[in-house]
């Protein structure tokens, strides 16, 4: 069974952390992953940086720009991760935009992920219909789980379609925004989370966007299986030069 599915079966709320690979320094990738696991993080999204990250706010944009300047490429990332399964057991997801994968070759990319032990992918600009028609078979051939986003504006009908195509979890974007733009949850989010709950989807949901601390983590996981923190963590490693990861994780899980 895929590590993501295994993890989702655990009887607890999951904390997933996103960070940009190759940032702040090119070779920080592996040690950040190891530190996150050591401190009790359940799942990691490894950001493959892109020159034009449309869905991201300034924090992740800047970290991507810096990572590319540091020399990060698809090939470099795969090399950094080649022995990752010797030390790390939690699910690992690569999150990135579609063009670098397209240039690497979608099948070659999936094959490499399987070899390394990557469990899933999140590709914000690969729409579910294109995935379903052109790439789903390839992803499944290599045992990869593709994770789709839904937003407060996504219709029930489309959510059901996304649920039918998914085989891991659904990434529930908390509000209409780019990453790192908004913080905190109000009544609007509560209504949205309840709407999704009432759909009784086959895939559990993990909330992302707008989660930065213990209180937003708790609020998000009240309705969902888990929550993803991205920009807040990237800010932390910027300020701490990729150190003191224990302090960050403890502050969320306290």
């Amino acid at each position: 069974m895929n590590r993501i599915n295994q993890k989702l079966q655990e009887n607890k709320k999951l904390l997933s952390i996103y960070f940009t690979a190759g940032y702040p320094s090119l070779n920080d990738t592996v040690s950040i992953i190891q530190d996150l696991e050591k401190n009790g993080v359940d799942m990691i999204e490894i950001g493959l940086p892109f020159s034009d990250p449309l869905a991201d706010g300034p924090t992740i944009q800047d970290s991507s720009t810096q990572a590319l300047k540091n020399g990060m490429t698809t090939e470099v990332l795969f090399n950094q991760l080649k022995d990752i399964r010797k030390t790390v057991n939690i699910p690992l997801i690569i999150m990135g935009y579609f063009n670098p994968m397209l240039q690497y070759g979608v099948e070659a990319f999936c094959k490499k992920c399987k070899e390394i032990g990557i469990d899933g992918l999140i590709i914000p600009d690969l729409p579910v219909d294109v995935y379903h028609e052109e790439y789903q078979a390839t992803f499944e051939k290599y045992g990869l789980i593709n994770v789709f986003l839904i937003t407060p504006q996504t219709s029930d009908e489309r959510i059901r379609f996304i649920d039918s195509v998914s085989n891991g979890f659904i990434y529930m974007v908390s509000s209409a925004s780019t990453t790192g733009a908004k913080s905190g949850f109000g009544n609007e989010q509560a209504a949205y989370f309840e709407r999704i709950n009432s759909l009784n989807l086959k895939n559990p949901q993990i909330v992302g966007f707008g989660i930065s601390n213990n209180s937003t983590f708790k609020a998000a996981t009240k309705y969902a299986k888990g929550a993803i923190i991205g920009s807040a963590f990237v800010k932390h490693i910027t300020a701490n030069n990729a150190q003191n990861i224990d302090a960050f994780v403890n502050s969320i899980l306290k």
Binding site: P124, P127, L149, I150, T151, Q153, T154, R158
Partner: peptide
């Protein structure tokens, strides 16, 4: 062509 957009833009 096509529409390679994040889900947030889909609606």
């Amino acid at each position: 062509g096509g529409a390679y957009i994040p889900e947030m833009l889909y609606p």
